[in-house]
Amino acid sequence: MATIREVAKAAGVSPATVSRVLNYDQTLSVNEATRQKIFKTAEAMHYHKSRKTRKSKQKRLAICLWCDQDQEIKDLYYYSIRTSAQAEAKKQGLESQVIYPADPLPDPAALSGIIMIGYQQYSPDRLNEVKKSGLPLVFVDTDTLKLGYCSVVADFGQAMQEALEVFWGQGRERIALLDGDLDSNFDKNNLVDFRFRDYKKSLAARGQYDPDLVYVGNFTPQSGYEAIKEALKSGSFPKALIAANDAMAIGALKAFKEAGIKVPEDVSLISFNDTTAAEFANPALTSVHVETQQMGRASVKVMKDLLDDDEAGTYKVTFPTKLVYRESCPKA
């Protein structure tokens, strides 16, 4: 009896595509010719669904990050996901190896699967390398379901909408965004960060999107400080600011303090991720809490499912978010 991987090879598509077609996944974007080819190939090869589990010969995971160790410590969001994934891997009897950008990817033969924290932040070469490995892949912090890969994400779309509605409820119509991009040749109207896309979509729907209110750093405190310091030179800063992460928000606080701008009296500030730094900033940051530890653990559980069940489909796990009110934007 043929396996999904054998059917995929014969049909010239990925195993994930075969699995989703044979499980009648309506969210999969695939043309009818390809769909029929998969069904005919599976029938010709006498493929039948089976719930038998398989055990991977290898029990070692690679956990990849797009940032180096220095930046990981400055933005504890990724640190929390990574360490939680490692702890869960150990609990599940799996070894794990952390791979930073400067590290070469281990020989695929020595691994059973790869967990990627992030997606768009990686170079095309790194993404191609992991995709060509042929190993099960799980992406954390980016929805890769339509690309044919399992993912673990937080509901950032709802979080951005909630942050905007808080400011609208305060009568603040001009709302700025402090976002990040790792490419120095970024397009400010089309940043890759998903928080920007949700921000732009919501404001554009109200006829309020203004690219001049988007300030860009690279997710570090220093870049947040420099972006806001430059923005303040205009002399007309909005009374509401959303920061893509706590690290840049802390840099923004420093720039505001130097300029004699009070938070939240002059500018209300909401950030994302609710790391430890948010609670101990001065003033303490109102921030979107993300279940980073649960996301890290879930990524390993999803991977374990892929390793143990040859018929496991492609799916997404989404965790809710919560706005934690503190001094930078008190609850009305």
Rank of each mutant, 00 (worst) to 15 (best):
A252C: 04
Y225R: 05
A252Q: 01
R174C: 03
N218V: 10
F186V: 09
K200Y: 08
L213N: 04
I175S: 03
A240N: 00
D246G: 09
L241A: 00
N218I: 13
G207R: 01
Q208R: 15
A247M: 13
A240V: 01
A252R: 04
V192Y: 12
A244N: 15
E230N: 11
Y225N: 08
I242M: 15
R174H: 12
V192T: 12
L253P: 03
P238W: 00
G235D: 04
G207F: 05
F196H: 07
L182R: 09
G207M: 06
R174P: 04
D198Q: 12
A231N: 02
A205P: 08
F186W: 10
A244R: 14
L182T: 13
G235H: 01
K239P: 03
A243R: 05
K229V: 03
S236M: 07
P221G: 04
L203F: 07
K188M: 05
D212G: 11
A249G: 08
L232S: 06
Y209I: 02
R174V: 03
S202C: 14
I250D: 07
D179S: 15
G217W: 05
L191F: 05
Q208V: 05
A227R: 02
K233N: 12
A204E: 12
F196W: 07
E230I: 05
S223Y: 06
A176T: 00
F194I: 09
P211D: 02
L213W: 03
F186N: 12
K239S: 12
N190T: 11
N190S: 12
F196L: 07
Y209R: 02
I250C: 11
F237C: 05
K200V: 08
G224H: 06
Y199S: 11
I250A: 12
A176S: 02
P211R: 03
S223D: 08
S184K: 13
L191D: 04
D179T: 15
L177F: 13
G207V: 03
N185I: 06
F219H: 10
K233G: 13
N185F: 09
G235S: 00
A204Q: 11
S236Q: 13
D181Q: 12
S223L: 14
D187T: 01
P221W: 02
D246S: 11
K254E: 09
L191I: 08
G224V: 08
M248F: 13
N189D: 12
V192P: 05
D198V: 13
G251R: 02
L182A: 11
R195V: 02
A247S: 15
Y215V: 00
P211M: 01
R195A: 05
F194D: 12
Y209S: 05
A249V: 09
F186P: 07
A231V: 01
D181M: 08
S202F: 14
S234M: 01
N190L: 10
V216N: 03
F237N: 01
S202K: 10
L177R: 02
I242T: 05
S236R: 15
K201Y: 15
N189P: 00
I250S: 06
S202Y: 14
D183P: 10
F219Y: 14
N185P: 06
P211G: 01
A227Y: 02
D212A: 13
